[in-house]
Deep mutational scan, measured.
Amino acid sequence: TETVELHKLKLAELKQECLARGLETKGIKQDLIHRLQAYLEEHAE
């Protein structure tokens, strides 16, 4: 999932992505995007 794609997701979809990775789901859309980006960078293959 790339940065551009995360911005296209709806808030509910971002929350699902966070939940699937065991991440916090509180906060505004930008918080969730930032959290997912950090996770994806950390776990990049």
Rank of each mutant, 00 (worst) to 15 (best):
T1D: 02
T1G: 12
E2C: 09
T3N: 13
T3D: 07
T3F: 11
T3W: 06
T3P: 12
T3M: 15
V4Q: 13
V4L: 14
V4D: 08
E5L: 08
E5A: 10
E5P: 15
E5T: 09
E5N: 11
E5K: 08
L6G: 03
L6P: 09
L6F: 02
L6H: 04
H7S: 14
H7Y: 05
H7P: 08
K8L: 08
K8V: 04
L9P: 01
L9C: 03
L9T: 01
K10I: 09
L11H: 05
L11G: 02
L11Q: 04
L11F: 13
L11S: 06
A12F: 07
A12S: 13
A12W: 09
A12G: 10
E13K: 07
E13S: 06
L14I: 07
L14A: 01
L14E: 00
K15V: 06
K15H: 04
Q16S: 08
Q16M: 10
Q16L: 09
E17A: 06
E17R: 05
C18S: 00
C18P: 00
C18E: 00
A20K: 12
A20D: 07
A20L: 11
A20Q: 11
R21H: 14
R21P: 00
L23P: 00
L23V: 02
L23M: 05
E24Y: 03
E24W: 01
E24F: 08
T25M: 04
T25K: 01
T25E: 06
T25R: 01
K26H: 14
K26P: 02
K26V: 13
G27H: 01
G27R: 00
G27V: 00
I28Q: 15
I28Y: 12
I28T: 14
I28V: 15
K29S: 05
K29G: 02
Q30R: 11
Q30K: 15
Q30E: 13
D31M: 04
L32A: 01
L32T: 05
L32Q: 02
L32K: 02
I33C: 09
I33E: 09
I33L: 10
H34W: 08
H34V: 12
H34S: 12
H34F: 11
R35W: 00
R35F: 02
R35S: 05
L36C: 03
Q37I: 04
Q37L: 07
Q37M: 06
A38K: 15
Y39P: 07
Y39W: 13
Y39M: 04
Y39L: 03
Y39K: 10
L40A: 12
L40S: 14
L40Q: 10
E41R: 14
E41V: 11
E41A: 12
E42Q: 15
H43R: 12
H43C: 06
H43V: 07
H43W: 03
A44H: 15
A44E: 14
A44V: 10
A44I: 06
A44Q: 14
E45L: 08
E45S: 04
